[in-house]
Design a protein around this nucleic acid. Structure first.
Length: 417
RNA sequence: GCCGGGAUAGGGUAGCUUGGUUAUCCUAGGGGACUGUGGAUCCCUUGACUCGGGUUCAAAUCUCGGUCCCGGCCCCA
């Protein structure tokens, strides 16, 4: 027997229906913010991802050569593709450009809870201007997306990479070492961060101040202690979010997101119920287009881990019940099957989700099948009813029946549904 | 890449410590009984020891390795 590759999943109909339901909630919510969906290839030139994320990501990239000896890779994320697409064909579109995407990504990693080698991301990018309005718009949408799914246990933390960068450079950390220090701070590895800074000749007071900054957590009021442009900028972002009614956020300057290309605001969302892989969303503002050969533009974006957020919903006990058929057509005797085929076809042609027995079951078994499959109505054909050109429509949950003339069947069914 | 726990019909399980006839039970799937109306009941039936090597007269059981799953570390663009 052939096994499914490690870290991949099959989605059976019930699960797929659930996933599609939540996908469409996300799409609808994104559209209320004026974002429009795009799709990019599942594989790209490997170079695209290496440019964005650095050569060390090669270890976890599904990279391969095609028959034309091209170096390709399955996408490990979609921001790079979105920015490539922007540079290739959207750079003259009126700004802001608001786009979102949904699809699978691939990373060669050790699978564990909430982490798969093939996983799904829902993301958005806003290309336009580097200003608090833009950042707030994007955070507001991320918050709305998470909330629209019905998730309750989560927190969104907003930080600003400029605050720490500025502080570190004032304290005397050379720019080529800031990334390492930031990475340690992001992971709360304070001992290592401290010895690194000390190695750069940073004074004890300055180190203490850096730590104090990373531990600045709370509501808007904590920003009064954050000096400089970045502090004012974040205050403005938070003010706008407040005006938009986005309340479930907190300021946390310890959100660093180690990457070099983030330029200002950064944010994350996590669902504590998920354990080790609890981050469900991450994003921030960046400039990437110039990396791919375009003009330098400011963008803000984020990606939501769709699989993780679904896991979190499951942990909160949210279930999704399958919709079931509208009608199941049953015949009382074999010779009525042709008539039944014509009726089921008529129903289907009018948008009613209808099915008919294909297994050669007798009426009793067919009724049983209809009921257990969750169909709402059984449409029963029998010789007696047909004498008056009618069928019996039975509500399978209440057991109520009514005689309906075949010419009225479609409209009668539509009334019920 | 590292540490630990696992894997028995489609799903859930018993058996494994102490090797020994036809591998347990529930559920599901297919058929039938109930001759024009249901998720009930009864009967029949399908279907599994993760894969490969080793020990042994004999392996689901002991042993080694692979694969996959689960929890954690690393990583997380």
């Amino acid at each position: 027997m052939i096994q499914r590759p490690r870290g991949t999943r099959d989605f059976l109909p019930d699960e797929m229906e659930r996933r599609r339901h939540y996908e469409s909630v996300l799409r609808d919510t994104a559209e209320t913010f004026g974002f429009r969906e795009v799709q990019t290839p599942i594989f790209e030139e490997a170079e695209l991802f290496i440019l964005r994320s650095g050569p060390n990501i090669l270890n976890e990239l599904y990279a391969f050569k095609d028959k034309g000896d091209r170096d390709l890779a399955l996408r490990p994320e979609m921001t790079a593709s979105a920015m490539r697409m922007f540079v290739n064909g959207m750079s003259n579109e009126p700004r802001p450009i608001k786009m979102f995407y949904f699809g699978q990504c691939f990373r060669y990693e050790r699978p564990q809870s909430g982490r798969y080698r093939e996983f799904f991301q829902f993301g958005a990018e806003l290309i336009g201007n580097a200003n608090p309005e833009t950042d707030a718009e994007v955070i507001a949408m991320a918050a709305a997306l998470i909330a629209s799914l019905g998730l309750e246990g989560y927190r969104i933390r907003i930080g600003h990479i400029g605050v720490l960068r500025q502080k570190l450079s004032q304290a005397g950390v050379p720019s080529e070492r800031t990334a390492e220090v930031l990475q340690r701070l992001d992971k709360k590895m304070y001992d290592e961060a401290e010895s690194m800074m000390r190695g750069c000749g940073v004074s004890d007071e300055q180190i203490a101040e850096v730590f104090r900054l990373t531990e600045t957590v709370g509501g808007k009021e904590v920003l009064s202690e954050v000096p400089g442009e970045a502090g004012e900028y974040l205050s403005r972002v938070v003010d706008i979010l407040e005006a938009m009614g986005v309340a479930d956020i907190e300021v946390d300057l310890g959100v660093v997101r180690g990457l070099d290309y983030y330029t200002g605001m950064v944010f994350e969302a996590e669902a504590p119920s998920l354990g080790a892989e609890k981050q469900i969303c991450g994003g921030g503002s960046y400039t990437l287009s110039e990396l791919f050969g375009g003009e330098k533009v400011f963008s803000t974006g984020f990606a939501i881990g769709f699989d993780r957020i679904l896991l979190a919903l499951e942990n909160e006990g949210r279930t999704h019940s399958p919709r079931g058929l509208d009608a199941y057509v049953v015949t009382a005797s074999e010779d009525l099957r042709l008539k039944a085929s014509s009726i089921v076809s008529e129903l289907r042609g009018n948008g009613i989700r209808a099915d008919i027995d294909l297994m050669g079951r007798k009426m009793s078994k067919a009724m049983k099948h209809a009921a257990s499959s969750g169909a709402r109505y059984a449409v029963i054909l029998g010789t007696r009813e047909l004498e008056t050109d009618s069928v019996t429509v039975r509500d399978l949950s209440t057991g109520e029946q009514e005689l309906v003339g075949i010419p009225d069947l479609v409209s009668r069914m539509k009334d019920h549904l």
